[in-house]
Amino acid sequence: MFTNHSDYFYNLVQNRQSDRAYDTRPVDREVILRIIEAARLAPSACNAQPWHFIVVDEPELKNKLADAAANRVLGINHFTKQAPVHIVIVMEPANLNSNFGSFVKGKTFPLIDIGIAAEHICLAAKAEGLGSCMLGWFDEPAVKKLLDIPKSRRVPLIITLGYPASDEVRQKRRKDFNEIVSFNKY
């Protein structure tokens, strides 16, 4: 099927998408653990690993979490109850070197690190035959209360996981390559 590892990887990237409809099959705990392991191995600035992953797969709690992610007024995230698994990413304090670098460079390295770990989750999910969708729009105080997350912590992302309701891979709408890439100068 694939002539080399790079073919597999680029196919995975090409076919990963934000899935917003899931079928009713549960996701085996072993599969979830492999996906979380992929996130755990993600690189981070100064090896700070500023994350904690909360896997929510208990149906009643997962549905309450889905309610905190949905917004009736804006009509968004109503699909989240279909997803059998939600992974809540909590931003943990970074180590001294990462915090110093964030301050000196004016960048929030923990958020960059979490973005990398989140994409590891989504690509690992795709490799396992699952769909995923990253959510940034949700009621963070409600999520923190539901999951006993300390008030001092932030929750930048929730990722839904499940078997996609359809095998259809949507055509990607992206900016033209030449619009976003240049060599040796802007």
Rank of each mutant, 00 (worst) to 15 (best):
L123E: 05
L111D: 14
A69Q: 08
L74F: 13
K64H: 15
F53M: 04
G131K: 05
V55F: 09
E92C: 08
G136Y: 06
I54Q: 11
K144V: 09
T80R: 05
L33P: 01
W137C: 12
N63K: 10
T108F: 14
V56K: 11
G101S: 13
A38R: 03
A48F: 08
S44Q: 04
V104Y: 11
L135G: 02
V27D: 10
R154M: 15
A39M: 01
K145L: 15
A70Q: 07
P84H: 06
A38G: 09
L123V: 03
L96S: 05
A94W: 04
P141M: 12
K151E: 13
T108Q: 11
A117C: 05
A127K: 02
K81R: 05
K151M: 05
S102T: 07
L147M: 11
I36G: 08
G131Y: 02
G101D: 10
N47F: 15
T80K: 06
S44G: 02
A39V: 00
E58F: 09
R25Y: 03
A127P: 00
F100D: 06
G75K: 12
W137F: 09
K81C: 09
C46S: 11
E128H: 00
L96I: 14
F103G: 11
P84Y: 08
N47K: 15
F103M: 09
P43Q: 12
A38M: 01
A83Y: 04
R153Q: 08
R34Y: 09
N71D: 14
P43H: 09
A48G: 04
K64C: 12
L41D: 08
N71Y: 04
P141T: 10
L74H: 14
H120L: 03
L65N: 12
T24I: 06
L130P: 02
